[in-house]
Nucleic acid binder design. Structure first.
Lengths: 339, 339
DNA sequence: AACGTATTTTAGATCGATCTAAATTCTGTC
DNA sequence: GACAGAATTTAGATCGATCTAAAATACGTT
């Protein structure tokens, strides 16, 4: 290298002012061109547009936000992005926002409320136009009230914080649970167990309640709920304990596919055949469900669709902050495979 | 409800000015308090801090960026978030940025360069401080040169655009490939195939080149490279075609675990035993690899670690824009299971 | 050519923070 | 109590856009 101290060029992006100078018009005119205003004459517009290219202009959205109050961004908070369900959901959201020209801030809360609140504070500082929230386990209802007071549009997904009538998009877990139980009962099962999530969320509680009602409706006793699990291996342990109990079930409905796959693995380890010795049904229909051996029977919850609907609802809410809250439930589909 | 037209309160967030009024000091002083300046007297600081709470102040980072030129955000571009590898990588990045107090814009390019460029333009308008990029297939080298000219710090991950000496973090695919081939050769295999990705990326080409060199090194002919695949089912088709060829291989190394799982599924469908009739090795060690039946032998590429290193490197680069480019390769681990 | 109307363009204030340079207040000393 | 020097506080300009209200220009009639 030649110059030892080569001073950083410190080239800042070109601004409106430079474009205006290049095109020989005022800043206000350039601004009008940028916003596609019909006010400006065709010839002027062309001159400005080529000036924009020659000076390499970059729109400064932060500066614009100062006046317009909108940033073109939204925040997405999920418990964990490594869960395939949330990954697909994120893809659905991204699809909608991309065509709308908006950007997404992503954060994973790891189900820790304080991390979630930290993130919310930060995106508020950035001036997000709205938030899609799958609340961390243990989030306080106070949080949602706070957000409402701040007038930040929020759409909740999958999990809803109790006691507040807010926008909400989710698979219809209740309907999915009914479908699974009806199917098992029709197949002759009389002793059915539920393996719930170890997490105490609205989505988990809803499934337990529905499970119990469905069994009662079919006249099948109080119903057996195993201890909760939150990973494959925990699910394997739980099903192991359950199988040696006094009256083991002939079918088990699991909170999600990961747990169901854990159950299957344990059955095979014990030389049992999933689908014959114990029927297993999961929730979600993650890619692995179709390709596992044996293939998993499951309730598909269509995460991409949930994401798309959530994004669309948020956009509507941003446009109409005082409209009535909506509740959108995506109908799940029972997918019969081998277990 | 009582008031039919309840006019939207249009309550904007409180600003520095209001805090200043409440605390009886100037805006400048409040600003100093916010930035933890040692200049301000303890008593004043306290007064300001309580004023901040009582008026419900929200820092406006957009306004600050106008003066400071930094936004506290970075952009992350991945081909697809639904790939478990990228999901874990994202989690690693998120972990680092959370403790650093920064926010992440997430976008998925779906391997479409125009979508990728659209996203880059948008985050530039927002003034991102840096970008972590896993370039879409077919990205032009021009893009990276452009970014450099714009002086946006960029760290590439996994895939690197040719011809430019830039910051790069990736699993050491070459080393992983050697480890897998050495293992197969030591196990007695003489006819080894590679099933590459259908995508033409640097990561794919590197694996093919290394595979060929490794075989040559072991004196095992030119080496057999099957047509590429990019999904489980494509992998199944490809391996089907390969098995009926004149001299079928006794082992196959796959571009990633998803392809390897597709291969295994096809073998089972044909009544063959993976690991005996055909050895199969994947790349990545996604969660499913450990739990599939039979469990998949694979080269673990430690996505979380890659994410963490990439985030740290980007932060270093933002702090020192003109430092020498770094290349960080994460050593993979061969995990022997049943295939 | 003069006039009224319609079309374009612009000057200057503004959004909410930071920065600079200067003003103010506080200390300790004599 | 006056003064130098340190510690604290502040007025006002500034970042890059948008907005308002007014100015400049063009156009069609008579």
């Amino acid at each position: 290298m030649n110059s030892e101290l080569s001073p950083v060029a410190e080239r800042r992006d070109a601004t409106l002012k430079e474009v205006a100078a290049e095109a020989g018009v005022s800043r206000a005119t350039v601004s009008l061109v940028l916003r596609q205003s019909p006010l400006v004459a065709a010839a002027t517009r062309e001159r400005v547009e080529s000036a924009i290219l020659t000076v390499g202009y970059v729109y400064n959205r932060g500066a614009a936000r100062l006046r317009t109050g909108t940033s073109g961004t939204i925040g997405l908070i999920v418990p964990e992005i490594t869960n395939p369900f949330y990954a697909e959901l994120t893809a659905g959201i991204d699809e909608v926002l991309d065509v709308e020209g908006r950007l997404t801030y992503l954060a994973t809360s790891n189900d820790r409320p304080e991390r979630q609140e930290r993130f919310i504070r930060r995106i508020r500082e950035q001036g997000v136009d709205g938030i899609i929230l799958s609340a961390a386990e243990g989030s306080s209802p106070w949080l949602l009230r706070q957000l409402r007071e701040w007038r930040v549009p929020v759409v909740q997904i999958l999990r809803s914080i109790a006691g507040i009538d807010a926008d909400f998009v989710s698979p219809d877990f209740s309907r999915g649970t009914w479908a699974a139980i009806d199917h098992l009962v029709a197949a002759g099962h009389r002793h059915i167990a539920l393996m719930p999530s170890a997490k105490n969320t609205s989505a988990a509680r809803e499934r337990i309640d529905t499970f119990l009602s469905a069994l009662r409706h079919h006249g099948l006793g109080p119903g057996m709920v195993t201890p909760g699990a939150s990973s494959r291996s925990e699910a394997a342990d739980r099903i192991g304990e359950t199988l040696i109990s006094a009256s083991p079930p002939s079918a088990v409905l699991c909170h999600n596919d990961l747990l169901a796959l854990g159950v299957i693995a344990e059955l095979r380890r014990r030389g049992m055949t999933p689908g014959r010795d114990l029927s297993v049904i999961g929730f979600d229909d993650i890619p692995e469900a179709a390709s596992s051996v044996p293939a998993l029977t499951t309730v598909a919850t269509l995460p991409v669709e949930v994401g798309i609907q959530a994004a669309r609802l948020l956009l509507r809410r941003i446009a109409m902050p005082d409209g009535a809250p909506e509740r959108i439930l995506i109908a799940p589909r029972l997918i019969l495979r081998e277990t």
